[in-house]
Simulated scan of single mutants.
Amino acid sequence: MRRYVAAALFTLLMAVLLIPGTGLAGPKQLEEPLLKFAVFSDVHVMDAWSIDHYKSTYKFTHALRDIAPLKPEFLVINGDLSNGRPKDLELVQTINKANGNFKLYPTMGNHEYYYQWENPEWNDNKAKAVFRNVFRLKKLYYDHFEQGAHFIHLSPEQYMDKQKVIGEAAWLSDEQISWFEKTLLSSKAPTFVFLHQPLDKTVGKTDNGVSAVQTNQLLAIAGKHPQVIWFSGHSHVSITAPTEFLQRDNITFVGLGSVYQPIVDRIADHFKSESRFVELYRDRIVIRDRFHHKNSFGETYTIPISDKSLLKP
């Protein structure tokens, strides 16, 4: 008798678990995303032997090992991969290959130009050439499609070497801005845009001198597209801050904190390490906070897709 009762209870339990909308194991929970990818920023890998070398290499290695079980299709590192030395960039490649060997899509940050502070013979052009060579890029800015979604990677092209007024802000050439407009508007698919420095008055700490010089042009272009998700780093403001996820004019602005050292309540936190993890579904984009120091997820943000017919089934 007990055997029959147990069997009946098991059957009832399975039926409940499979009922859509129960919040337990309905179809939504079983759905697999079309695409998964991770987005890092401000890794600051340093090859020179110092406390910063140990800290940056350890945190980057740990972050890669943390995301490996999540099986992202690729990894974006949105600027400040290094501190500007050629050996720093080579070390980024070495660490990645040894800890997941993720397909990597990088953009330059202001720190990629920093070697000129140590080497008087270094300049912007050498910094850009080394970056392209190490990561085998034909151009500093480029795009690609994944499962029907569009990915656009922008890069700052000058540092103080040529224009002192730029400071740590992003400066983009007319050629890159023209390319961005043409490339962005060539498709109506959901589009992810990556630029190391944020745009003025978007995510936190976007005052003059740290954001993009051509903010107004970039915003005007992005506003013409039906759906843009814009990722930025540079400020190190923690992803837990309420300023780091903002939606306006069909654009979603997402801050990336820092793998190396986020800033929490205006104080640098030497222990923490943060990034974002993105899942693409046919009807929505899910962005999740990832805390590498905890090996766990935090808040989840869901963005409905305006035209899901553009994505691959």
Rank of each mutant, 00 (worst) to 15 (best):
175 E>Y: 07
213 V>M: 10
178 S>K: 08
165 V>I: 04
211 S>L: 09
120 P>C: 04
204 G>M: 09
170 A>W: 05
209 G>C: 00
216 N>P: 00
170 A>C: 13
169 A>K: 07
157 E>D: 15
135 F>V: 08
138 K>L: 04
149 A>V: 06
148 G>W: 09
162 K>T: 14
211 S>T: 12
178 S>W: 04
138 K>V: 02
117 W>M: 09
216 N>S: 11
132 R>W: 05
109 G>W: 12
138 K>P: 02
131 F>H: 08
209 G>Q: 07
154 L>H: 06
170 A>D: 05
159 Y>T: 15
145 F>P: 05
183 T>M: 15
168 E>T: 05
110 N>D: 08
168 E>H: 07
164 K>H: 11
142 Y>T: 03
133 N>H: 15
210 V>W: 07
214 Q>H: 06
134 V>I: 15
177 I>F: 14
180 F>N: 01
207 D>Q: 11
199 L>C: 00
122 W>D: 11
119 N>I: 02
133 N>D: 15
177 I>W: 07
126 K>N: 00
172 L>R: 09
178 S>A: 14
122 W>K: 01
179 W>L: 13
120 P>W: 10
152 I>H: 06
192 F>A: 02
188 K>G: 10
167 G>F: 08
188 K>I: 08
202 T>G: 10
141 Y>E: 01
149 A>Q: 03
117 W>L: 09
168 E>N: 06
130 V>F: 02
117 W>N: 08
214 Q>N: 04
135 F>M: 15
125 N>E: 12
119 N>S: 14
148 G>T: 03
180 F>T: 04
135 F>I: 10
156 P>K: 09
157 E>L: 10
139 K>S: 09
188 K>R: 00
193 V>Q: 01
116 Q>T: 00
150 H>N: 14
121 E>S: 14
191 T>Y: 03
166 I>P: 05
145 F>I: 12
202 T>D: 07
153 H>K: 10
133 N>L: 11
212 A>G: 11
173 S>G: 11
191 T>K: 03
144 H>G: 03
205 K>R: 08
142 Y>I: 01
118 E>G: 01
136 R>M: 10
114 Y>F: 00
196 H>I: 01
211 S>A: 07
129 A>Q: 14
131 F>I: 06
119 N>R: 14
147 Q>H: 13
139 K>C: 07
161 D>L: 09
138 K>T: 01
133 N>C: 03
185 L>H: 04
137 L>D: 06
183 T>S: 15
113 Y>Q: 00
206 T>V: 10
141 Y>V: 02
204 G>S: 01
153 H>D: 04
124 D>Y: 02
190 P>R: 12
166 I>S: 08
156 P>L: 13
134 V>P: 02
192 F>N: 04
112 E>K: 05
183 T>C: 15
128 K>I: 10
196 H>E: 09
164 K>N: 12
122 W>C: 08
119 N>V: 03
113 Y>D: 05
160 M>A: 11
131 F>L: 09
206 T>K: 12
209 G>D: 00
214 Q>W: 01
187 S>A: 14
196 H>Y: 14
134 V>E: 01
169 A>D: 06
191 T>H: 02
181 E>C: 15
126 K>G: 08
146 E>W: 10
200 D>I: 06
123 N>P: 08
143 D>L: 05
203 V>E: 05
158 Q>T: 14
149 A>S: 13
152 I>M: 10
202 T>P: 12
132 R>I: 06
119 N>H: 11
160 M>F: 09
